[in-house]
Write a protein that binds this DNA or RNA. Sequence first.
RNA 1: GUGGACGUAGCUCAGUUGGCAGAGCGCUUGGUUGUGGCCCAAGUGGUCGUGGGUUCAAGUCCCAUCGUUCACCCCA
Length: 422
Amino acid sequence: MGALKSIKGTRDVLPWESYQWQAVEKLCRELFGSYFYQEIRTPVFEKTELFARGIGEFSDIVSKEMYSFQDKGGEWLTLRPEYTASVIRSYIQHHFEQQSALHKIWYAGPLFRQERPQAGRQRQFHQFGIELIGSEFPEADAEVITLACEFYKKTGLKEWELHINSIGNIHDRQTYIEHLRKILKPHIESLCPLCQQRFDNNTLRLFDCKNSECQAVLDLHAPNILDFLSKEDKEHFEQVCDLLTYQGIPYVINPKLVRGLDYYTRTTFEIKGKTLGAQDALCGGGRYDNLVSELGGKPTPSVGFAAGIERLLIALENETISFGDYACPDLYVASMDLNSYSGFLKTWNELRSMGFIIETDLQRRSLKAMMRDAHKKNARFVAVIGSDELKSGTFILKQLDTGAEIKADPVSIKDILKKGSL
RNA sequence: GUGGACGUAGCUCAGUUGGCAGAGCGCUUGGUUGUGGCCCAAGUGGUCGUGGGUUCAAGUCCCAUCGUUCACCCCA
């Protein structure tokens, strides 16, 4: 087809689907708002340098997945591939720390990565998430994780699992990696070709390999990262776990959980959707105590998560959970002619300003066609108006689910709509 | 970037060893004056992704190309 189409890896949220997206945003406002998080909205594009510094120049995201371009002034800009860097940039730029030592922020919006699309992955995708900036304590980690879990609970989703881990501070992590290399070196031949590559430049990613032989080697020989944590980090991790246990939040300690972004320290976590395909991370996050200072701010311990909206909607669909309310007309106005249409216009507008949804026919269709249309749109009531009704100042009001009909007028209609039935 | 699968009506899909392009759903209009849902009838609908090739003849066979999709890499 030569017709214009949306770009590969992008999708329209169609008029009859958008209610779900509105419900996601509403739940963000209500749930995060109830913990006194406030929404931030940052630009969808930033200087390329921000992401290069924030995410790590050699990460996959920065090295091959960013939508970057030069503007007319020759400056390199990038469509954001990730939220945290932008939020921290704004935090530093506007001197949030001058207002208070702690900030709790949520966001929702589109992100862009030039990858090959597949199930649960698009080039423009959407995330919501939170950043808790300014606390080093396990209460902060636990609150962030709790909020992620609460969100999924409130949607009604059942088939998911929380995995948590601690990867310690950068120093201990480095010792662990060196140790891991030393121990695995004799077994490098039995790893898959890809893992042999990963062995040198991305050792921790070995744990992500889906090859069962590689996993067997790791299970047999690899030391547990948790055994390499410093006393403080270990204690921190245990306290986070305890806080989750106190709240009755089930979790799996997964020492193999290594997240892809370079900036994580200590706590990392992921919520895996059990009904999803290869891309099964509903939500991922963790602590990033060094990012603020790396981007030029004062050292500020922080923790947050990001969750994929498309993946959430897929998971809900897989469990046949309906999420959000599809709006239907409270009243469908079926007028027989132009005079009937204009006769009660003020009444309909008044009802609309009271908050009712009033649909009218604009195609001068037959009564039969209008009744069909009202039924298709799942309207609660239909008002039928012809010349007789116009003369008497009343109209016929029909309740579609029962089929009952009465005469109504501009005054009585208000109470009937409020009551919802005849 | 690599590999597999698939492109026929708005949607879901049939289409035989090459021989006039189909169904269901949807949409529109009717089934006695101004009444929906069920039912019935009619109507609407397609450059068979695109471009070449083989053939008397291609939706069907061959090549190329584009698109979609799933998986890898990686991540939400």
